[in-house]
């Protein structure tokens, strides 16, 4: 069963002459353990799609179901709870909270959810250890390198058994080596059953996804399936 199901999603900003259609009927389903990359030029609607899928924005029409819950039927508090328990975000510029150490950044969603500090800290330490950040756990974001910050952001996005990871240009602010490392990490996370939607400009990095969806002017203009070992991508054009 799909963890994220998006049907006929449209999003229109503004009115009259200022009217802009960001999405024009996009449908998408993401299964647990799969990684979907979304590519497209600027203004194609990638980030809008991610924001709607992450309950940060309402669509003009269409529906979004996350973990079998109809997002349109949820209030602000229930959506916030969904973000705490199911959805994790990774942004291009890391968005770690200044003033909190790496481990405090990771455990914050758990603590907001009412988990006791000790338990949250153990969970955060475990995750950071898995990502090779044990030594950096008690450092502040401005004491970490870009790659380390993004790894902390990924740990925060999957902490507490979150199952849907939405990443907006996660390697955009990183050098090639760190970018590849971050994509590897997301890939590895998916292998533990997390569903991931990754917006990227980089075709090389997108090639690590199970599927690549191409957007242009708010419409899906192409979709590539996973590369089988020794084979080529199968391409579908709607």
């Amino acid at each position: 069963m799909s963890l994220l199901v998006v049907r006929d999603l449209t999003k229109i900003y503004g009115r009259g002459a200022a009217r802009v259609q960001a999405l024009g009927g996009v449908s998408l389903a993401v299964e647990p353990g799969s990684m979907v990359a979304i590519m497209g030029p600027s203004g194609s609607g990638k980030s809008t799609l991610l924001a709607i899928a992450g309950t940060l924005e309402d669509p003009t029409s269409g529906s979004v179901r996350i973990a079998d819950a109809d997002v349109a039927a949820l209030g602000a508090d229930d959506r916030a709870r969904l973000r705490r328990e199911v959805i994790g975000f990774v942004f291009q510029d890391f968005n770690l909270l200044a003033g909190l150490t790496a481990i405090e950044n990771v455990t914050l969603p758990l603590e907001l959810d009412g988990v006791a500090r000790g338990r949250a800290e153990r969970e955060g330490a475990r995750l950071l250890g898995e990502l090779g950040l044990t030594e950096q756990a008690y450092r502040f974001p401005d004491e970490l390198s870009g790659g380390e910050r993004q790894r902390v952001a990924i740990a925060r996005a999957v902490v507490g058994d979150r199952r849907l990871l939405l990443a907006d240009e996660p390697s955009g602010a990183l050098d090639t080596r760190n970018g590849e490392s971050v994509m590897e990490l997301i890939r590895a996370t998916c292998q533990r059953g997390v569903a991931a939607v990754v917006v990227t400009h980089d075709a090389q990095l997108a090639s690590r996804a199970d599927r690549v969806i191409h957007l242009r002017d708010g419409l899906v203009v192409g979709e590539e399936a996973a590369v089988e070992p020794g084979g080529e991508r199968s391409e579908t054009v709607p």
């Binding site: 705490r84 959805i87 975000f89 959810d113």
Partner: peptide, 16 residues
């Protein structure tokens, strides 16, 4: 504001 937005993205409610 950006940090507060990030907090919201992490699942903080307006009350938080």
């Amino acid at each position: 504001l950006r940090s507060l937005g990030q907090l919201g993205a992490l699942g903080a409610t307006p009350r938080h």
